[in-house]
Design a protein around this nucleic acid. Sequence first.
RNA 1: UGGGGUGUAGCCAAGCUGGUUAAGGCACAGGGUUUUGAUCCCUGCAUUCCCAGGUUCGAGUCCUGGCACCCCAGCCA
Length: 562
Amino acid sequence: MSDNSNHESSNFIRNIIKDDVKNKKNKSLVHTRFPPEPNGYLHIGHAKSICLNFGIADDFKGGLCNLRFDDTNPAKEDPEYTDSIQQDVKWLGFDWSDRLFYASDYFEQLFEFAKQMITNGKAYVDHLNADEIRDHRGTLTEPGKDSPYRDRSIEENLSLFERMRAGDFEEGECILRAKIDMSSPNINMRDPAIYRIKKAAHHRTGNNWCIYPMYDYTHCISDALEGITHSLCTLEFEDHRPLYDWFLDQLPVTCHPQQIEFARLNLNYTITSKRKLNELVVDGSVSGWDDPRMPTIVGMRRRGYTPESIRDFCSRIGITKNDTTIDVGVLENCVREDLGGRAPRVMGVLNPLKIVIDNYPEDKSEQLDIPNHPNDPTMGERKVPFSKIIYIEKDDFMEEPSKKFFRLAPGKEVRLRYAYYIICNKVVKDDSDNILELHCSYDPDSKGGDSPDGRKVKGTLHWVSAEHAFKTEVRLYDRLFDDPKPDSNKHENGWKDFLNSDSIKVVKNAFLEPSLKSANKEDFFQFERIGYFCVDSKDSDVGKPIFNRTVSLRDSWAKKQK
RNA sequence: UGGGGUGUAGCCAAGCUGGUUAAGGCACAGGGUUUUGAUCCCUGCAUUCCCAGGUUCGAGUCCUGGCACCCCAGCCA
């Protein structure tokens, strides 16, 4: 199996950690965490973070990585997501062992810490409403103003905060805020909210709470409580770092993790925004979070991407603070490379053209022994039936070929892969000039695809015996968007205008070699000369697999045609 | 116009405390092998590191000054 994930190239975060280990910081321990909010499905951008966090833990002796759900907003979170996230991380090949945590596990502790902050004069209950708070916050260039409630006594704050917990106030009536500095040039430091009232049931704590802690307050404490050494997050949290450090400095925690930020993943022709992906699901643009066109982990899995290929991708793109956009071609190349080495080869005709081999006996058929992989004999062979009537791909025939076309044409000889040489003698058409079938003759001496006289044929075509063909549905997927930046452009009607109308083409009756009838869900193959396909995990039945195209083969001929 | 970041090829990205011909991958272009126009294998692809000055025997790496782009004004994360 190909797997480069253990041979990460250096990046600035690894370098920092390497130094920390060398300098015996944190007793030379490395402990990271992957902290998703369970409010949606994981996507390729999360894979980058997962590979970074778990990858680093794997690379350093004794390193650990926790899985922690950042579940502080009951309005948006759901067990559907905690389940899928765990499956996805596992499927990607990572293991959090017994270290599965929830921020909600810390609610009681978080509450106690908040009371301590009040006691220390570092937090207060503010009765300004949301609009007033915004007005008091100031702007990017102007300082904010203190709330009139900022100097309430410790006793009053304590009692008010207890009453918030007890449910004495309505949502929006008041919040607990940190008392820092309303004139800080960093807006995050202008007395940020710590607790807000939300009378909503939480997926784990039920109705135990009607106040919920905010991210900035919860995250750093959760990290500290778990003994995290390096807290890796994306760039937009960079100016939250002073707050992260401030909270930990106020509290009696013995661990103070180092937050390090890196750039999130952007892919061209792709959208990675939970909100927008959700919109596609809700409005029916795709069939669900696991639609094979989605950049979600479940979607990519169903499309035929392997964990190995995704990990390889993540290691190739690197980790920096540069705001960059990766070419999806890199991703596609990663699956091709992985599957190229280990996908069994098979033959299937998607767009059939009938061929009658005139000199092949009427009722004869034979079982040819065909290797499952041209470059890897250990993958064995299979039997593929051959007979008088076969199908080839329509594109593989041209009545009036250009000089560079070396597939089948009238009077031309080609090889049927692993079978025989055939030569085209006659083109049969209907009244409106459509080609109905081709009549060819074969060379019995060329069995297997070689002729004893050593004559060369340039073209080799895949084929399927008509009477033996297994007919099933094949789906040809393409990019979901046809614009490289569907996200950023201010197109009149928004990003959905860039949805690619050809992102799925369904071939209802593809003609596949019969061995494919017994393929199982998630099995992958290379359909020779076409691309990589996998058995759809949802819509397939035993004996009736349906195939999804993961990615096409590189096609320099098609490229030349343009 | 406040604060925080980033600028190395078409797209990513190494480049440790300044030292030699500026890694590697993707893409692209040529050539070879080939029973997949696939794979594989060669070869080419930044006199130059956002720009301008400066320090130095020597700068992508240090200094100064510009410029460009990204993020921040949720009781979201």
